[in-house]
């Protein structure tokens, strides 16, 4: 098993850091899956994660200048590593103004992802910081636990308003309640609502649009056509943990081009964040009353 990659562009390093930072806010531990073309950050919906799942894929070529890997075998040319987000973030923190960052899988006392950061310096040669982040290699037989979750059979799919607007509102709603009800309809309307004994607050977002999905579960650019019968006015909702939702909104730092919210009434919300070279899916289960 071998992995060696290098990032040389400051913009790529910072972008990569923002992605890792977003994932690390969503989950403490997660899985990094390395394949020849893509990198994946995965969290499966276990009890420990509170029912949350994450599936993030990035096209490695858009970040790495050099990239070489050999998986566990020729047939299964992939590597799965269990990592602690906080540690990777610390390593990347050093790299924000770096000349280059090399990432490789190494074996020190324990398997590590080693980040070798070349920093600019006053003298002719570089300064160099090396971070060895311990990781666990996940055995081949466990790989099936880390497959892409299927697209849910959603009742509603809607493009979200700018995440920073949502974030401002959720930050205040967090102080009122632990849960928020997110609802949307086929008419480009979305509501956020909290309710306690003392107060009920609802924020209404209008003039959003609804995406179209084809049979293969892929996004199309045209109007959402499925419900023409006036039912598009009906709201579909789900009650979720406000803190987990708030964590997702941090994804705004990645400057996504689209963020889609798919709601399965009273079951789960599936967020789909799309950017040029990556996509992030985040599943939050409903908290029933």
């Amino acid at each position: 098993m071998r992995f060696r990659g290098r990032l040389v562009d400051v913009a790529c390093i910072q972008h990569f850091t923002r992605v890792v930072s977003t994932i690390s806010k969503l989950a403490k531990n997660y899985v990094l899956r390395i394949t020849p073309d893509k990198l994946y950050f995965i969290l499966n919906d276990s009890v420990t994660s509170g029912g949350i799942s994450i599936w993030c894929e990035m096209i490695q070529a858009n970040f790495f200048d050099e990239y070489n890997m050999d998986g566990v075998s020729a047939e299964f040319n992939e590597i799965y590593l269990d990592i602690i987000g906080e540690n990777i973030m610390r390593a990347l923190k050093s790299a924000q103004s770096a000349k280059s960052v090399k990432v490789k899988l190494t074996k020190k006392h324990t398997p590590c992802l080693t980040f070798d950061v070349q920093l600019p310096s006053l003298s002719v040669s570089s300064r160099n910081v090396v971070h060895d982040v311990p990781v666990n290699v996940i055995a081949r037989r466990l790989w099936e636990d880390y497959q892409e979750p299927p697209m849910p059979e959603f009742d509603i799919s809607i493009y979200m308003p700018p995440l920073r607007l949502l974030r401002n509102v959720i930050d205040r709603m967090k102080n009122l309640s632990s849960y928020v009800i997110l609802s949307g309809n086929g008419n480009g309307e979305m509501n956020l609502s909290v309710e306690t004994d003392m107060v009920s607050v609802t924020t209404h977002f209008r003039d959003l649009s609804n995406p179209t999905w084809n049979k293969d579960g892929e996004l199309e650019e045209s109007q959402y056509e499925i419900s023409q019968d006036g039912q598009s006015q009906n709201f579909v909702s789900a009650r979720i943990d406000i803190k987990k939702f708030s964590n997702f909104l941090i994804g705004q730092q990645m400057n996504p081009s689209k963020v889609i919210c798919n709601i399965v009434h009273n079951k789960v919300i599936h967020f789909f964040l799309i950017q040029d070279d990556l996509s992030l899916q985040y599943f939050i289960p409903v908290i029933s009353l």
């Binding site: 610390r90 390593a91 050093s94 020190k108 003298s123 910081v129 090396v130």
Partner: peptide, 9 residues
């Protein structure tokens, strides 16, 4: 634990 090492000339 993460190990960090910085080298300077």
């Amino acid at each position: 634990v993460m190990h960090t090492e910085m080298s300077l000339l």
